[in-house]
Computed example of a mutant assay.
Amino acid sequence: MSQFTLNGVARSQDQQGKGASRRLRKENLIPAIIYGGNEEPVSIGVKTNELVKALSNDAFFSSVIAISIDGTEQEVIIKALQRHPAKGFPLHVDFQRIVRGQTMNFNVPVQIINEETSVGKKAGGVLTTLVTDIEINCLPRNLPESIEVDVANLAIGDSINLGDIKLPKEVTLVTADSEDLNRTIATMQAPTVETETEASEEASETAEASEE
Rank of each mutant, 00 (worst) to 15 (best):
T187P: 00
V93A: 09
D180K: 02
K122T: 09
L91M: 15
C138S: 09
E179H: 08
T192V: 15
L143M: 06
N161C: 11
A155Q: 08
L154I: 12
N137Q: 15
P90S: 08
N105G: 09
V149C: 07
V119W: 08
A123L: 10
E115G: 05
A152D: 05
V119L: 14
I113E: 04
T187V: 11
K169L: 13
V126F: 05
N182K: 15
S159F: 08
I160A: 02
N182P: 00
T184K: 10
A176E: 15
V93L: 04
G101P: 15
V131Y: 09
N182Y: 09
E145Q: 10
S146G: 00
D150H: 03
K121N: 06
N137S: 13
E148L: 07
L139H: 11
T103M: 11
Q96P: 04
I112S: 07
A123W: 03
V108T: 05
D177H: 07
L130E: 11
T132A: 13
V99S: 02
D158W: 05
N137I: 14
E179G: 10
T175S: 10
L167K: 09
V171C: 00
D164I: 10
P191T: 03
V99R: 02
L167W: 04
C138H: 05
R141Y: 06
S159A: 11
I112R: 12
N107D: 13
D133E: 15
G101D: 10
N182V: 01
V171W: 11
I160M: 05
L130F: 15
G125P: 02
P90G: 14
P140M: 06
V174P: 02
P144Q: 03
V119T: 14
I136T: 01
A186I: 01
R97I: 06
Q96E: 05
D177L: 09
V99N: 06
N153M: 12
L130A: 12
M188D: 05
N161W: 04
T132E: 13
I147Q: 09
N142A: 08
A190I: 03
V171G: 08
E148H: 03
T128D: 00
Q111E: 11
S118R: 10
M104Q: 08
K122Y: 09
I147G: 05
P191F: 00
H92V: 08
Q102S: 03
I136R: 06
A186N: 02
P90H: 12
D133W: 06
L181R: 03
V131C: 09
Q111N: 14
T175C: 12
N153S: 06
V108H: 01
M188I: 00
D133K: 14
P168W: 09
S118M: 12
P109G: 01
T175G: 03
A176W: 12
E179T: 14
N107R: 10
V119I: 15
Q189V: 13
L173W: 01
N153W: 02
E170L: 11
V149R: 05
I185N: 00
V110K: 11
I112E: 06
E170K: 13
V93D: 04
A152K: 15
V171K: 01
L127F: 02
N182W: 07
I147K: 10
D150G: 10
L130S: 12
G120V: 06
